[in-house]
């Protein structure tokens, strides 16, 4: 059975380690915050200029001056810090952020990502995505394995305008966990419970590498 968005987030949360500074993109990545184990210390970065992003405020306690990169009202936490947007991207560029989790429209087998523009449709802009993928040392893509038209989003070559090149190392979809190998190719690491290797192969347009027995994901937090 393929995973829900919450389950994808749950699986990604297992990649977060104690002491990590983490930038979460919009969509499924935002949900990851709900599944970070309570016994580890993690600081969430919001690229508009905040380290230590807390949960949404209680009703009536919203502060128009305190928002995240998705423009949602949020809160700070003890130990939070606030800075300008240039410093925010300075720490991203200087690789101080340990893990970046973002969504994608397409990923290619050499690690290129496309997630900002569909030709012929209204383009809203790349926001901070190009800065993040160009600099982050550790990027996980959270996305659906196939698009709404049923076409694979894991391709040999991206067809959409690129956001960054050779930067994605890991992908978590509703079907599988895959590593993008430096020499090219999607290495199947884990399957969603009940999903066959054959089904993942059919859903992957780029080069899929399957070696040995592929275990099912463990979603226990």
């Amino acid at each position: 059975m393929s995973l829900s968005k919450e389950d994808i987030a749950k699986r990604i949360a297992k990649e977060i380690k104690d002491g990590y500074y983490v930038n979460l993109g919009i969509g499924i990545p935002t949900l990851v915050a709900n599944y970070i184990p309570e016994n580890i210390n993690v600081v969430l970065q919001s690229e508009n200029g905040l380290l230590g992003m807390g949960p949404f405020p209680f009703e009536g306690e919203e502060d128009a001056d305190l928002i995240n990169a998705g423009k949602q009202t949020i809160t700070t936490l003890p130990g939070s810090s606030i800075f300008d947007s240039a410093m925010s991207f300075g720490m991203i560029r200087a690789q101080k952020v340990d893990l970046t989790i973002l969504g994608a429209m397409e990923v290619s087998e050499n690690g290129d990502i496309a997630n900002w523009k569909i030709p012929g449709k209204m383009v809203k802009g790349m926001g901070g995505a190009m800065d993040l993928v160009a600099s982050a040392k550790n990027i996980i893509v959270a996305m659906q394995h196939v698009n709404k038209a049923g076409e694979s989003k894991l391709l040999s070559v991206c067809t959409l305008p690129l956001t960054g090149v050779k930067c994605i190392k890991k992908i978590v979809t509703e079907l599988a966990v895959l590593n993008v190998l430096p020499e090219g190719g999607f290495q199947l690491v884990e399957r969603a419970p009940g999903v066959s290797v054959e089904f993942i192969r059919q859903s992957t347009s780029g080069k899929l590498i399957v070696e040995g027995e592929i275990p099912e994901m463990n979603l226990e937090v």
Partner: peptide, 23 residues
């Protein structure tokens, strides 16, 4: 890119004509 936007402002304020960014 957002970081490029911010840093092109920063460069102007710091009296630097240009920056190099991977974005």
């Amino acid at each position: 890119p957002q970081g490029t936007l911010a840093t092109r402002c920063l460069a102007a304020g710091y009296g630097m004509p240009a920056i190099f960014t991977p974005a």
